[in-house]
């Protein structure tokens, strides 16, 4: 549905996006992850035909974003990061305007608008001026205008920013329900959001592609870590652990004033686990706690991003 090849965008000397390629299948929700200023918005603006790339090409729904921009624009719904709406219009008037300008036949406009207002729970504010509604409603009006006219591709730039937890939940459910029928690209710097919503994640940093994978695969990458709490002579334990086969590294972790916590990273998890048991028995230490540490996307994100910088 979306093909991006060697995309590069320069603003004068500054290279905002550097040779990025990826593709998105129909019906997929793709997460776009990166720190602020990583180039997420720039990629989205190219995909929505707001401006063309310096190099490379982007194809959306079979049309080139630069050469066939009108055909692309007919098939996308876009929520820009700042949610720029016409403040002096009423919610329903605004949505009617957007529906019509997106080419909805006049007879269909009313039905379309009612549908998106229903989907985004906007009926309560339909007669209010956009400048008078709360942040959460505003964000939902932004999403509603992207959804109106049922576009094949949705491009949402930080759709849940500035919402309260309940609203975030609602919006996430709304986006989740779109998968299958619509192809969605959403950008965020909230990592749990990606694990909840997205089938696949792209991590970019400083304009470069750092990783593309499923969120659970990315999470699995760093999971061969274990936390141990052992009663005994801490330096001796640390030494014994680090000498063991299958263990890559050991770190002391000081928790709540106790110095008997260790984080073990394995090369070979099976071999390492066995070694630990016999080691504790042989030394007559006391095992207080043992658990696998699930690496969060935060860890992976920081790891990938810092690896890139090193």
């Amino acid at each position: 549905m979306i093909e991006v090849e060697n995309l590069t965008k320069e603003y004068g000397e500054f290279r905002a996006v550097d040779n990025i390629s990826f593709s998105v299948e129909k019906g997929e929700i793709l997460g776009f992850l990166g720190p602020n200023g990583a180039g997420k918005t720039t990629v989205m603006r190219i995909l929505t035909c707001f401006f063309p790339p310096t190099k490379g090409r982007a194809i959306v729904a079979g049309f080139n974003c630069f050469e066939d921009s009108l055909n692309v624009r007919k098939r996308i719904g876009y929520l820009p990061e700042r949610v720029p709406l016409y403040e002096d219009m009423k919610v329903s008037d605004y949505l009617r305007f957007v529906a019509a300008i997106k080419g909805t036949p006049a007879k269909e406009v009313k039905r379309q608008v009612e549908k998106v207002m229903d989907d985004c729970s906007l009926s309560d504010v339909s007669n209010k001026l956009i400048k008078a509604v709360s942040r959460g409603y505003r964000q939902r009006v932004g999403i509603a205008q992207a959804l109106v006219n049922d576009p094949e591709v949705l491009i949402l730039d930080e759709p849940t920013v500035g919402l309260d937890p309940k609203q975030i939940k609602e919006i996430r459910k709304l986006i989740k329900d779109l998968a299958g029928r619509h192809t969605v690209i959403l950008s965020t710097h909230i990592l749990p959001e990606v694990s909840i919503l997205c089938g696949r994640v792209i991590i970019i940093n400083k304009g470069k592609l750092v990783a593309v994978d499923r969120p659970e695969n990315l999470a699995a990458e760093g999971s061969r870590r274990m936390f141990l709490r052992i009663n005994g002579n801490a330096p001796a334990i640390e030494q014994a652990l680090s000498r063991m086969a299958g263990v890559k590294s050991v770190e002391r972790e000081l928790t709540a004033g106790e110095d008997n916590g260790f984080v073990v990273v394995f090369d070979d998890e099976k071999q390492g686990r066995q070694g630990i048991h016999s080691m504790i028995e042989n030394n007559r230490w006391e095992l207080l706690e043992m658990r696998t540490m699930e690496a969060s996307l935060e860890d992976i994100f920081i790891k990938l991003v810092t690896k890139e910088e090193a």
Binding site: C49, R73, P80, P84, L85, V98, Q145
Partner: peptide, 14 residues
């Protein structure tokens, strides 16, 4: 200034 141009120019109109 308000950024609405971004939506306006990405609507399917010339």
């Amino acid at each position: 200034k308000t950024g609405t141009i971004e939506l306006l120019l990405t609507f399917p109109i010339n």
